[in-house]
Simulated assay, not measured.
Amino acid sequence: MRVALLTYSTKPRGGVVHTLALAEALARLGADVTVWTVGRGGDDGFFRPVDPQVEVEVAPLPHLEGETVGARIQRSIRVLGTAFADRTAAGVAYDVVHAQDCISANAVPRCVRTVHHLDQFTTPELVACHERAIVRPYAHVCVSAAVAVEVEAGWGLRPTVIPNGVEAQRFVEAAADPGASEPWRRRFGRYVLAVGGIEPRKGTLDLLEAFALARRTRPELELVLAGGETLFDYRGYREAFDARAVELGVVPHVLGPVDHAALPGLVAGCAAFGFVSTKEGFGLAAMEALAAGVPVLARPLPVLREVFGDHVRYADEKRSMAAALLECVERGPLPGGAGLALHHTWERAARSHLDLYASLSARPGAAARRRDRSGPDRPAAARGPGRPAGTGTTRPACP
């Protein structure tokens, strides 16, 4: 089976991590896999090495000074769509074209779409883009049942639920190797870690408030923030975060993206992992922390309760978050977390995807769908019932 997986970036964001790991697992099971992406600012490859069994196609997207977020997203769609159409016009055919986000779902005419989580947008240009990314694909995947329920409620669709895999062994090994985490502990001492950058969806300001309260009891704690590569402009939120940190007397260590090989040691070395996102599809970073034997604080979203059950501590406002952080630091992880992480393998996820692909190929009209999977984005698209463009209602997050 020949499969194209499309993603929006080469940077270490959750959807991109998912795409690469799924591609490699599919290839190990015998599929012929190509990953398509957009290379922003001169990137010609991903943030980590990719298994040579997987072909990689990067469509260059040069930086344009002063470009708005909306314009950058539209240009990303055009560039990826044109590159993909050129390749298919040259005779390359795929049995399945699977978009992992709304940018790539807009770039190709017909595809399977993974909806990782839903969010809200009000800009008409982006709302229309997001709507097309839901209604135009002919099949849908969600990585949790909670998000699948939201998609069904909003659009009347029935996504197939295939949970994420986790590269758990990397984090298990880091936890067992003192040398992996020792440089981070030497640098920061005892630290609370969050991965994903400083942005509204990650709830970083809430974590800052909770950390400041917890540090009144445990003044030796430091706050470390890793990751943060994004298409969006969160400068206003970052300025508010920085100002509030000064008011609270907290000096966070903001690392930005961390090298792929160094990340497990950073996670394994923390005293607690803060995962207080306001929207998530699965919680891959928190699952990695469980694999490393680290105690996790999570916001009690339905999706996170579904995925993590009783293996993490939950809190939803700054005082209860502070209390939960102190429990994490003082009492350690809850039982069974590492076992949960080890259960979520990429081989299991890849087999479920292959089963889905096979079922789609057996449906009436499958041959016509394959013939229609080339060409750049088409501006007109059907909308779901009762969902006019530009209403600002719940929409799939992009990316």
Rank of each mutant, 00 (worst) to 15 (best):
A315G: 12
A176D: 11
M321N: 09
T217Y: 09
F273K: 11
F241M: 07
L304H: 12
E65A: 15
F188I: 00
E209V: 07
R190N: 06
D372W: 10
R371N: 04
E317T: 09
S144G: 03
D259W: 05
S144N: 12
P163I: 03
A315M: 11
A368Q: 12
L208Q: 00
F232L: 13
D206Q: 14
E220D: 15
V258R: 14
T82C: 05
T230N: 09
H63N: 09
C102I: 02
A367S: 13
G281F: 04
V192L: 02
P335L: 13
F188V: 00
R373A: 12
A315E: 10
P12D: 12
G236C: 05
T7P: 01
F121A: 11
P12Y: 12
K318N: 03
Y138M: 08
F241E: 01
V195N: 03
A367L: 12
L225W: 08
V294C: 14
A389W: 01
A261R: 09
P178R: 07
R370C: 03
R158L: 08
D372A: 15
E288V: 04
P396L: 01
F47I: 01
H353E: 11
E306S: 12
R373Q: 13
E173I: 05
A368E: 15
S359H: 10
A148R: 05
T82K: 13
R136K: 14
G154D: 03
G236S: 14
P178L: 11
S320C: 08
E67Y: 10
L304A: 10
Y357N: 10
I162N: 09
H18C: 04
G269C: 11
A262Y: 04
R235I: 00
A21L: 06
G42I: 07
A285M: 14
A315L: 09
C102P: 07
R78F: 12
D206M: 10
V143H: 11
A174P: 05
G14R: 06
G390L: 04
C328E: 02
A85M: 05
P60L: 15
L118W: 02
L225R: 00
